[in-house]
């Protein structure tokens, strides 16, 4: 039974040693906002914050998060970044969006005034098939400006 906090709450649930963090979040805790797109660490959809840093939850075991603070999309404050995504039409199907929000949240915290190039590099860890990325870049730059 891993002891961790998820979105600030202590978790009280058992996990088999082989259970992926993504499956633990989704199916054990019911936090289905984290999405699974490839289970091999490329698409970025399942990105969460582990101790403040973005990580692929499909490449982590739940038991590895013993003692960690995990934040998922459900734990993000719906603030300027979310508003910028709405304003710029930065999502269509919304399946990749949670992971992108997690990466951008960590990135903008560390780099409050990024260049477009820096934003695109961060986003290159995420695959989006719907938007062509431009509106996501615009939303990130807009949120950084706010």
């Amino acid at each position: 039974m891993p002891r961790m906090t998820v979105n600030g709450e202590a978790v009280d649930a058992a996990a088999e040693p082989r259970l992926l963090l993504s499956d633990f979040l989704r199916h054990t805790l019911g936090l289905t906002g984290t999405h699974v797109g490839c289970e091999h660490g490329v698409c970025g959809a399942c990105t969460v914050l582990i101790d403040g840093r973005p990580a692929r939850s499909c490449l982590a075991l739940a038991v590895q998060c013993e003692g960690a603070e995990v934040v998922t999309v459900e734990g993000l404050e719906e603030g300027v970044l979310h508003a910028a995504f709405r304003r710029h039409f930065a999502l269509q199907c919304g399946f990749c969006t949670a992971g992108i929000l997690m990466s951008l949240t960590a990135f903008l915290r560390e780099t409050p005034r990024p260049t477009e190039r820096e934003v695109r590099e961060v986003l290159s860890g995420h695959l989006c098939r719907c938007t062509g990325y431009t509106p996501i870049v615009a939303a990130a730059l807009d949120a950084a400006d706010a």
């Binding site: 936090l31 906002g33 459900e74 719906e78 999502l91």
Partner: peptide
Amino acid sequence: EDRALLGGRGRFIDD
């Protein structure tokens, strides 16, 4: 559509 999707409250098949 966007508020729910941004908040992680979408309802996809595996959800």
